[in-house]
């Protein structure tokens, strides 16, 4: 699935502060089968852009086309995986995973046979009949990945899917996501604010600036897969991207916290008036 994002801009109207420009003239293309990461500081409109591609939100100007067709509404060819797994609490894992197929009016027998394969793919075979509240955060996210994959979408839209998981679960799921991607060759659009994650997963990393968000730079990641944490090539790239990202984080900090704060070169937050006399 080829996705073309052309001149997309978006404003939000807030009664208290007026208009806020969220996205400013975004242009890029996601090629068929590509794993694209969108990296940026918090509040820069990453999720808004993902929602626009999903058809859950609409741009004020510009357009998104999917295989040449402009996006008008959400569709099962582009399934979203949210940060909160968004499983239906009244359904078991099995019923959750087959939800999308049920919406497509696929018969129960066929649903069951397809669903079990994907539940096994995400290693939840033992929890087929468990309810979401009985699962850990990582297991919930596995279930929601299976729920998306079973629809056989051409594209997965992942909105900080591992953002609320602990570091170990996160690493594990990153490895498994790469495996799933190499098996299924889905196009993946992965939104994250985690630099390490973006570099570890993506073929390409788009760096989006602080509000108003525009594409600041693009990095092509050539490292071989499966990528593991601690790969020196990746760490070199991380450092390179960090220099660029730091400026944007600093902007956000200033927007959100206080103008008195500056980020030191090492990324540590410190107030300007407490500099241990280094400016004497």
């Amino acid at each position: 699935m080829k996705v073309v994002i052309e001149n997309v801009s978006k404003k939000f109207k807030r009664p208290d502060v007026g208009e806020i420009q969220i996205l400013d003239n975004i242009n890029f293309t996601i090629e068929e089968g590509e794993f694209v990461c969108l990296l940026g500081p918090s509040g820069c409109g990453k999720s808004t852009l993902l929602n626009i591609i999903a058809g859950l939100d609409f741009p004020d100007s510009g357009q998104v086309t999917v295989n040449g067709e402009p996006v008008k509404k959400p569709g099962a060819d582009r399934v979203v995986i949210f940060q909160e797994a968004a499983l239906f609490p009244w359904l078991t894992v099995l019923e959750n995973v087959e939800f999308g197929l049920k919406m497509k009016h696929i018969s129960k027998e066929e649903r069951r046979s397809r669903v079990l394969d994907y539940i096994k793919m995400v290693h939840l075979g033992r929890f087929v009949n468990a309810y979401p509240h009985e699962l850990s955060g990582g297991m919930k996210q596995r279930a929601s990945i299976a729920r998306a994959l079973v629809m056989d979408p051409q594209m997965l839209l992942m909105d900080e899917p591992f953002g609320s998981l602990d570091a170990q679960t996160r690493n594990l799921l990153e490895v498994e996501l790469q495996e799933i991607w190499s098996k299924t060759h889905k196009t993946i659009f992965f939104v994250t604010h985690n630099l390490r994650e973006a570099v570890c997963l993506g073929d390409k990393v788009y760096l989006i600036s602080a509000r108003p968000g525009h594409i600041k730079s693009v990095y092509k990641i050539d490292a071989s897969r499966p990528r593991k944490e601690g790969d020196p090539n990746l760490i070199y790239l991380q450092d390179k991207i960090m220099d660029c990202l730091r400026e944007e984080i600093e902007k956000v900090v200033k927007q959100e916290i206080d103008l008195d704060y500056v980020l030191s070169k090492d990324g540590i937050l410190c107030p300007v008036d407490r500099n241990l006399g280094s400016n004497i």
């Binding site: 058809g55 959400p74 099962a76 968004a86 999308g100 839209l157």
Partner: peptide
């Protein structure tokens, strides 16, 4: 979020 999840899975 549940409504949005259902929408992206093609529910009318």
């Amino acid at each position: 979020i549940l409504l949005r999840a259902a929408k992206t899975m093609g529910a009318n």
